Simulated assay, not measured.
Amino acid sequence: MSLFRKIFGSNTPPSEEEKDNDYSKYTPDINAPLDEQFIYNFKKNGGKFLYCENEVEVKDHFENILEENDWFESEALCYDPELFSMLKENKITHHKPINPSFILANCENLIANEGSILFSSKQIKQHKPNELPTNIIVIAKTSQIIETKSDGLSVIKNKYISDYPTNITTIKYFEKVEEEDFTQYGSSAKNLYLLLLEDL
């Protein structure tokens, strides 16, 4: 059964086989499709996930995020000219912001096995994760979901043959933990919204 049907419902009742396979919504299935693995791990890491069937839904969800956080007519960091129109429509300044409320970006890939997001200098220039605003809005497509970080590096290598990006990094933690966790040492937690556009 598709994860998107599980989350957003379906008009057709599940078959007996699907009921048997749906043994626990809290237990990750290592044989599950990559999109299910990614969403499970991403949400476990504290990320906020919004599924979008089309570009109109992307804009609607984006405006809802702005309203929820009172970010209309604020400043944002953004390096992708394709996203400038979304900011301009909502009167958000992105040209040399002094105190950006958030960063709006695309990404290289979504890493399923750890629920992280892979960025390069194409999206965040030379900023380290701890230099970025705490609030991040990422727009990605379902076709960008891959299994591991090494797969992501292979995709980048094949995608940018002559203009290879630098500063390749992942962001994995999307909420601060209450107790000390050595796995988060050296990383900064981000309040991250993912607008995931279905393109498969």
Results as ranks from 00 to 15, higher is better:
1 M>Q: 13
1 M>R: 15
2 S>F: 05
3 L>Q: 04
4 F>N: 05
8 F>D: 01
9 G>L: 04
12 T>V: 14
13 P>K: 10
13 P>S: 07
13 P>C: 05
16 E>K: 14
16 E>P: 13
18 E>P: 10
19 K>G: 02
20 D>N: 13
22 D>A: 02
23 Y>C: 03
24 S>N: 13
24 S>M: 08
25 K>W: 15
26 Y>E: 09
26 Y>H: 10
27 T>W: 15
34 L>R: 06
35 D>C: 05
36 E>I: 03
37 Q>I: 13
38 F>R: 01
38 F>C: 00
38 F>W: 03
40 Y>K: 12
40 Y>R: 12
40 Y>I: 09
41 N>H: 13
43 K>I: 13
44 K>Q: 11
45 N>L: 01
47 G>F: 00
47 G>I: 01
52 C>H: 05
52 C>D: 01
53 E>Y: 06
53 E>I: 01
53 E>P: 03
54 N>D: 09
54 N>G: 01
54 N>P: 04
56 V>A: 08
57 E>A: 01
57 E>L: 00
58 V>P: 03
61 H>P: 07
62 F>R: 04
63 E>N: 11
63 E>P: 05
63 E>W: 12
66 L>G: 03
66 L>P: 11
67 E>R: 12
68 E>W: 14
68 E>A: 11
69 N>I: 10
70 D>S: 13
72 F>C: 03
72 F>G: 04
74 S>T: 13
74 S>D: 04
75 E>V: 07
75 E>D: 06
77 L>G: 07
81 P>S: 06
83 L>C: 08
87 L>W: 14
88 K>H: 15
94 H>I: 04
96 K>L: 01
97 P>W: 09
99 N>V: 03
100 P>N: 11
100 P>V: 07
100 P>A: 02
102 F>N: 03
105 A>S: 10
105 A>Q: 06
106 N>S: 08
106 N>C: 06
107 C>H: 10
107 C>Y: 07
108 E>Y: 13
109 N>R: 11
110 L>N: 00
110 L>V: 01
113 N>V: 10
113 N>D: 08
114 E>Q: 14
114 E>R: 15
115 G>Y: 03
120 S>H: 11
123 Q>M: 02
125 K>L: 01
127 H>C: 02
128 K>Y: 13
129 P>M: 06
133 P>E: 03
135 N>A: 07
135 N>P: 11
135 N>V: 08
136 I>E: 05
136 I>Y: 11
138 V>N: 03
144 Q>I: 00
145 I>V: 10
145 I>C: 02
146 I>C: 02
146 I>P: 01
147 E>W: 13
147 E>A: 14
149 K>D: 00
150 S>N: 14
151 D>R: 11
154 S>L: 10
155 V>H: 15
155 V>L: 10
156 I>V: 15
157 K>T: 13
158 N>L: 08
159 K>P: 09
160 Y>W: 11
161 I>A: 03
162 S>L: 10
162 S>V: 15
162 S>A: 11
163 D>G: 08
164 Y>P: 14
164 Y>G: 11
173 Y>Q: 10
173 Y>V: 09
179 E>H: 14
180 E>M: 11
180 E>H: 15
181 D>R: 12
181 D>M: 05
182 F>W: 15
184 Q>T: 12
190 K>R: 09
191 N>V: 07
191 N>G: 04
192 L>S: 05
193 Y>R: 09
195 L>F: 08
195 L>I: 04
196 L>K: 11
196 L>Q: 09
199 D>K: 02
